[in-house]
Design a protein around this nucleic acid. Structure first.
Length: 297
DNA sequence: CGGGACTCCTGCCAGC
DNA sequence: TGCTGGCAGGAGTCCC
């Protein structure tokens, strides 16, 4: 489901109900998601105060009182639903949708329920179970197997054309694949790579290293960096993209899918002014790439 | 070693 | 209507 903007949106939703709050109960409906839950998972969280949350790549990190960090990843289909003590979605006044909350926490794919001291529940639902949860001591966080090799944050200061040039210098892989490589850039996924490449006018098929010269780089790398940042920031502002069923923890839907230029738009006209091309779908390393062969070179 | 194929799992939808 | 195959926002692991 979620790429950086969706994970950021979910993190903010969780932040608003968890920061400074104590978790009184953790209920597991099974003993694994993608991986087994760590030993004593529930016990190590119960009774703890949540100090703060942050996003790193597509991971959500919850720092707990006592020095442990709860690591969350939504995989493809993970989502959180927040339900107040009266069984209603929070934050939506009278406009909550009862069909969303009915039976929440007991559905076939509701795998984890965190309950706050005051009864508010945070339900993790994940049909495909590609998500994961783990616990690690704060001092071991950076060395955690899943986080150790993660690259720079595309919205952070380290991400610039120079960084990309060095990352791409010896990359024979297609540009699309290189941008999806989480060890280079943290948090980009299929949608936003397709969209950023279209904005930058770069073909997903060209080798990443084709943008790097011996002592310099193609100035379009600067454009690419600019567009990656812009598309992510716009998507975050829109609350992410809602395909199928992505919703915020509070039940609202993201809207960025309405402005996709290429993603899932095979056969449509390229929206770039005076381009006149037609969006194509190709498969690269087993995944769909959408692009305009006319204006992306 | 880098790069790509395969894998996990369920739901959904187009096409027959 | 009902089945089937393909596809889905991720990413670790294996193999060449």
């Amino acid at each position: 489901m979620p790429e950086l903007p969706e994970v950021e949106t979910v993190m903010r939703g969780l932040e608003s109900v968890l920061t400074g709050q104590r978790i009184s109960e953790v209920r597991l409906a099974r003993n694994n998601l993608r991986f087994p839950f760590p030993p004593d998972f529930a016990k190590r969280i119960e009774g703890r105060l949540v100090l703060r949350l942050k996003r790193r790549a597509k991971y959500i990190l919850a720092f707990l009182e006592g020095g442990e960090v709860l690591i969350l990843h939504l995989g493809m289909s993970g989502r959180f639903t927040i339900i107040d003590a009266k069984g209603r979605l929070t934050g939506l006044g009278e406009f909550y949708d009862e069909s969303v909350t009915a039976g929440a926490g007991s559905g076939p794919h509701d795998h984890v329920v965190f309950t706050r001291e005051d009864g508010l529940r945070i339900v993790y639902t994940d049909p495909r179970r590609f998500g994961l949860m783990d616990l690690v001591g704060e001092t071991g966080l950076e060395a955690h197997k899943l986080l150790a090799a993660i690259g720079v944050e595309p919205l952070g200061n380290e991400f610039d054309a120079n960084y990309l040039a060095e990352a791409f210098r010896s990359k024979k892989a297609p540009l699309k694949a290189a941008l999806l490589d989480q060890t280079l850039i943290a948090g980009l996924g299929n949608i936003y790579v397709c969209e950023a490449l279209h904005r930058a006018g770069l073909s997903p098929r060209r080798r990443a290293q084709s943008l790097v010269k011996k002592n310099s780089y193609d100035p379009r790398l600067e454009e690419l960096v600019r567009h990656i940042r812009a598309v992510l920031l716009e998507a975050i502002a829109a609350g992410g993209s809602t395909l199928r069923d992505f919703v915020h923890p509070k039940g609202e839907k993201g809207s960025f899918q309405q402005v996709f230029a290429v993603y899932d738009r095979e056969g449509e006209k390229c929206p770039k002014r005076r381009c006149g091309g037609t969006i194509r779908r190709i498969v690269q390393s087993g995944r769909s790439t959408f692009y305009c062969p006319r204006c992306q070179k």
